[in-house]
Design a protein around this nucleic acid. Sequence first.
DNA 1: CAGCCGTGGGA
DNA 2: TTCCCAAGGCT
Length: 312
Amino acid sequence: MTATTPTPPPATDAAPSAPAADAATLHTPVNAWFAAHARDLPWRRPEAGPWGVMVSEFMLQQTPVSRVLPVYEQWLKRWPRPADLAAEPPGEAVRAWGRLGYPRRALRLHAAATAITERHGGEVPDDHAALLALPGVGEYTAAAVASFAYGRRHAVLDTNVRRVLARVVTGVQYPPNATTAAERRLAQRLLPDDEATAARWAAATMELGALVCTARTPDCGRCPVAARCAWRLAGFPAHDGPPRRGQTYAGTDRQVRGMLLAVLREATGPVTQEQMDAVWDEPVQRARALDGLVADGLVEPVAQGVYRLPLE
DNA sequence: CAGCCGTGGGA
DNA sequence: TTCCCAAGGCT
């Protein structure tokens, strides 16, 4: 991992035994920084409501903000409430998902909207357990919706927060590949006692990781807690552990699935086998990819050699 | 728990 | 150009 050495602010003289970063010294500067520098994102505006927050969280799972923005706007305009989405076939959600990637998320969001409509009176639940029970909602998303939409006090551990805590508190460049119990304990320990402050802290630490304490080239000169950052104080030691997994894409089933589904999305009606076959010349892999899409519920066979996006 | 599931843009 | 990686979840 070639880690571009961050640009540290001129190392202040400060005592050799620099103050360790702890909860009390982090909340105020980080939350103040957020108040001054937070992006004006549509799902952060009051009119977004819990449903808007939930939609954004689904879309933002592994997809950058810039690509989510236009799709989010269209989505909320078309389906302003969960019941509006639930009233349409899941295939419409897949089509509207466009090229955000991981289209199973569209299916899960549709399923979540259906569950919300049927089990929660059409209102996005406000408690963590009920959220966690929804399709496509895991630990992170449940905490994020409860915190961002309802101001609840939850440790929100996403990739940004994990990286910030790894650096500022633990003193390492990157967090482990998988979230550990130690990270959860740390996040819990750092959580402000006050509910509103905790909710702000969750959003602030995420934003800090997204804008300043980035994966490749952190900009310590703009960091509100650089003076107490354990990683910086340690001299930016490079990541040791195993290399962080890099995923190849070209030539994989995922690529073929993507190409097949693109044909369905862009077609207005059912598509023939011949149209599907045109996207990939290797028949075994092509068949495997299509079978996978059908198994996942992303594609529905309507007749021998005819397919469409799912109506059910 | 490791592997799988899309896509595009920036360095 | 290649490589990295971006607000995860599910099996």
